[in-house]
Computed example of a mutant assay.
Amino acid sequence: MEPAEANSWKQRIKELAYQSGFSAIGFTSGAHLEGLKEYLEERIGLGYQLSFEDKDLQKRVDPKATWPLCETVVALAYPLPLSVKPREGEGVLARSAVGEDYHRLVRKALDSLISSITTAGWPGQGPLIQVDTGPLNERAFAKRAGLGWIGKNQQLIIPGVGSFVVLALILLDQALPSDEPMESRCGECTRCVQACPAQILGQARFQASRCISYLTQSKECLSESQQSSIGNRIFGCDTCQEACPHNRNRLDMEEELENAGEGIVDTRGVDLWDTQHLTKSQFMRQWKNSAAGWRGKGILQRNAHLALQNLNMIKR
Score class of each variant (00 low, 15 high):
127 P>R: 09
91 G>M: 03
280 K>Y: 00
39 Y>P: 00
42 E>P: 02
79 P>W: 01
160 G>F: 12
41 E>Y: 05
234 I>G: 08
71 E>H: 14
107 R>F: 13
259 N>D: 08
216 T>C: 01
99 G>I: 05
221 C>V: 15
287 W>P: 02
297 K>S: 09
217 Q>V: 11
286 Q>D: 13
47 G>P: 08
39 Y>H: 05
133 T>F: 01
17 A>S: 15
6 A>V: 11
194 Q>I: 13
287 W>I: 02
151 G>W: 03
287 W>A: 04
3 P>K: 10
82 L>W: 01
284 M>V: 13
279 T>C: 12
163 S>T: 06
197 P>G: 11
84 V>P: 09
291 A>Y: 00
288 K>L: 14
236 G>C: 10
161 V>P: 00
271 D>T: 11
251 L>M: 12
240 C>D: 03
294 W>G: 00
33 L>R: 05
214 Y>A: 04
305 H>P: 06
206 F>D: 01
261 G>S: 08
45 G>E: 14
16 L>M: 14
126 G>V: 02
299 I>H: 09
176 L>I: 12
91 G>W: 10
124 G>C: 04
265 V>Q: 13
245 P>W: 04
115 S>C: 02
91 G>I: 00
149 W>S: 03
5 E>W: 11
107 R>M: 13
261 G>Q: 04
260 A>V: 06
316 R>F: 06
260 A>E: 14
282 Q>R: 14
153 N>S: 11
102 Y>A: 03
9 W>G: 00
193 V>R: 05
204 A>N: 12
265 V>W: 11
262 E>T: 14
120 A>M: 15
15 E>V: 14
309 Q>M: 13
50 L>F: 08
274 D>R: 15
251 L>V: 10
305 H>Q: 15
66 T>K: 03
113 L>H: 01
95 R>I: 08
200 I>T: 05
48 Y>W: 14
303 N>Y: 05
311 L>P: 10
115 S>A: 14
291 A>H: 05
60 R>W: 02
138 E>N: 12
264 I>P: 02
280 K>D: 13
97 A>F: 02
311 L>I: 00
101 D>S: 08
29 S>P: 04
143 K>P: 06
64 K>P: 03
46 L>S: 08
126 G>P: 09
22 F>M: 09
300 L>K: 08
61 V>G: 04
211 C>S: 08
152 K>I: 06
240 C>I: 04
283 F>C: 04
103 H>S: 09
253 M>C: 13
62 D>K: 12
33 L>D: 01
253 M>L: 15
13 I>N: 11
285 R>I: 09
75 A>C: 13
17 A>V: 03
176 L>A: 03
137 N>M: 15
140 A>C: 01
123 P>M: 10
312 N>P: 05
313 M>W: 07
129 I>N: 01
26 G>I: 07
40 L>N: 02
56 D>H: 11
190 T>Y: 04
52 F>Y: 15
247 N>G: 12
224 E>L: 14
166 V>A: 13
139 R>L: 12
130 Q>W: 00
24 A>H: 11
112 S>E: 14
181 P>V: 01
244 C>D: 10
89 G>H: 09
125 Q>S: 14
287 W>V: 02
217 Q>D: 07
147 L>G: 04
270 V>W: 10
59 K>I: 09
298 G>D: 12
228 S>N: 05
